[in-house]
């Protein structure tokens, strides 16, 4: 089922007839808009696209896309999507998950889908809270988080989703946020075009249970000084007129500097295609909280063997070598004897 003959689609072709039921003001609306607006630009057909989700607010996403879709069970979307992708490498398979779904109950499936490098586009909506169950801390909530289940503050240190993905050998790792449709679209486009598992963390505001968690970074007035845009092959600069930048010290540590203090040549040049993930890892860990300058964009994008394709190649090789399987022959493969 090739996409070569895809007739042009428009945004409305990608929207299902279901009423969208997130809370008014939820960051999920912006993400849905970005995806629906992007899809016609990707040159793929709705019938060749599958959205698989787990459980949580974000996981309602497939209901709103006029594609094939499955709203599955908590945490298991990467495993189910692996089944779809392995069975049908011709499909474009997206996984929509959240910080609880993807990093808590489904953490095992997420890391293994990334390790195998299954051709999946994984969107992790990170709002640092459990929304659907009404306000418990999540595995990305900051230490000390006061929530319904932690009235005295959480004693659980959080995961850094990008560091987890990189630790799992993810071949594509990026971060975007729900307030910038253009940035989301460009990030999702790159993730879609990447062959293998692509992991996108989306800072997403839960205006009901964790409102403003990222606003010090993502609100319009703060972005210049707080968002570090990563561009492959370019020195890492941010701030008004790019007055600040990132350097790597002789101890291997990344530091934020004033460009005037060190000179432009001293700035770290971003290399998303580097085989060694340590630079991407260091960038992922540059910010430890939601109050400091934080990198966005593509941290890592490398080529390595894609899983479903490799499975198909083994099948094709076997077919070429042995010919199509013959059942009668298989039943005789342990040796036979004749009676009578």
């Amino acid at each position: 089922m090739s996409d070569t003959a895809v007739s042009l689609t428009s945004k409305k072709d990608w929207a299902s007839d279901q009423e969208v039921r997130w809370c008014p003001g939820c960051g999920d609306y912006g993400i849905l808009q970005a995806v629906q607006q992007l899809m016609p630009e990707l040159g793929v057909a709705p019938e060749n696209t599958v959205f698989v989700s787990g459980i949580g607010c974000s996981s309602r996403f497939p209901y709103y896309m006029n594609t094939y879709g499955m709203h599955s069970i908590h945490g298991r979307a990467p495993a189910i999507a692996t089944g779809v992708a392995v069975a049908r490498p011709d499909l474009h398979v997206w996984v929509v998950t959240g910080d609880g779904d993807g990093l808590s109950i489904g953490g095992n499936h997420l890391i293994h889908a990334l390790r195998r490098n299954v051709n999946l586009t994984i969107l992790l909506f990170n709002n640092r809270i459990y929304g659907l169950t009404k306000g418990q801390f999540s595995p990305t909530s900051e230490l000390g988080k006061v929530s319904k289940s932690t009235p005295f503050g959480s004693v659980d240190p959080p995961f850094n989703p990008l560091a987890v993905a990189l630790g799992a050998e993810a071949s594509f790792v990026a971060r975007t946020h729900d307030l910038d449709r253009h940035h989301m679209m460009e990030t999702f486009r790159a993730a879609h075009e990447h062959r293998g598992a692509s992991f996108v963390e989306i800072y997403q505001n839960c205006n009901v249970f964790n409102d403003g968690q990222f606003s010090e970074i993502t609100r319009r007035q703060a972005r210049d000084e707080m968002m570090i845009d990563l561009h492959h092959g370019e020195p890492i600069r941010f701030g008004v007129d790019g007055h600040r930048g990132v350097v790597m010290g002789s101890d291997g540590q990344l530091r934020l500097v004033e460009v005037d203090d060190v000179g432009e040549d001293a700035l770290l040049v971003h290399d998303a295609h580097r085989e060694d993930p340590s630079l991407a890892f260091a960038l992922a860990r540059l910010s430890h909280d939601d109050h400091s300058p934080t990198p966005f964009g593509i941290f890592r994008s490398i080529d390595r063997q894609e899983y479903a394709g490799a499975v198909s190649t083994q099948l094709a090789t076997a077919l070429e070598k042995s010919g199509p399987g013959d059942l009668a022959e298989l039943l005789r493969s342990n040796g036979t004897w004749t009676v009578g």
Partner: peptide, 17 residues
Amino acid sequence: AEDEIAAAGVALGAAFA
């Protein structure tokens, strides 16, 4: 698969496909 749950998930995903 990475575990029994994922193994079932793979089978179910393949069935959907």
